[in-house]
Amino acid sequence: MTAPITAPASARAHRPARGRSFPPLRGLLPLGVLLGIWELTGSEGSPYFPPPSTWARGLNRLWEAGTLRPAIGETLVTFGLALVVATLLGAMLGIVVGALRKADRALGPSLEFARAMPPAAMVPIAALLIGYDEKMKVAVVTFAAIWPVLLNSRAGVRALDPVLLDTARSLHLSWFDTMRKLIAPALLPAVLLGVRVAAPVALVITLLVEILTRVGGLGALIALSQRNFLSGQVFGLILVAGLFSFVVNGLVAVLEGYTFRHRPR
């Protein structure tokens, strides 16, 4: 687990007021200084390093033109849908492959091969088979995001202690209760760890596919802006994508914290 190292509450309360700053804000200080310098020294017309104020203007222009919001929406939908599908499918496949040695033997090599395949290389085939649309985007992103979930679920199943199943049998739990009360909660941390690894991957691939195919979303907007030499707008959109992933990471961490609430901290 990657719980942040913090002083216990009692120790913190005894600390002098001087030390009571806001770590996240302090952490943002170097970034703020850097952006400030950039703003002051950068030139408005630079095609390479447009100052932050032009980013804001570019984003504002897109917002007023009504293209930014739908683009964010589309990226969000692709990302969210793909992550959900990858989680469900990955967990199911992972559990089957982990539980059945035969399935593992049969599918193992194919899975290893598919896992090693760069998702971006799948785009032409996916576009050919599915078409240049939302479905294709979701398919490619799912393909990229499924592996961490699948492999972690598989490992989770293998790490299950047989004693847990014996316990269920000895206490006469039904199959359904065994799954619901013992197996599912026991596997949840492994699956969530997979999701945690998969979420940033899904976001990267979502943007990549959008940039490659121009089928809607933030990525398409970035590619379009770049092609039109609107550097400020490109930087602004990248900032939005960065904030997006920041939020996603935060959400996954919250989810994990909730699942691990009964574990030692």
């Binding site: 202690d161 004693v163 847990l164 014996d166 026991a186």
Partner: peptide, 10 residues
């Protein structure tokens, strides 16, 4: 079971 840690649900 001997392995109480694996038998209890954490």
């Amino acid at each position: 079971f001997q392995n109480y840690a694996a038998s209890l649900l954490p």
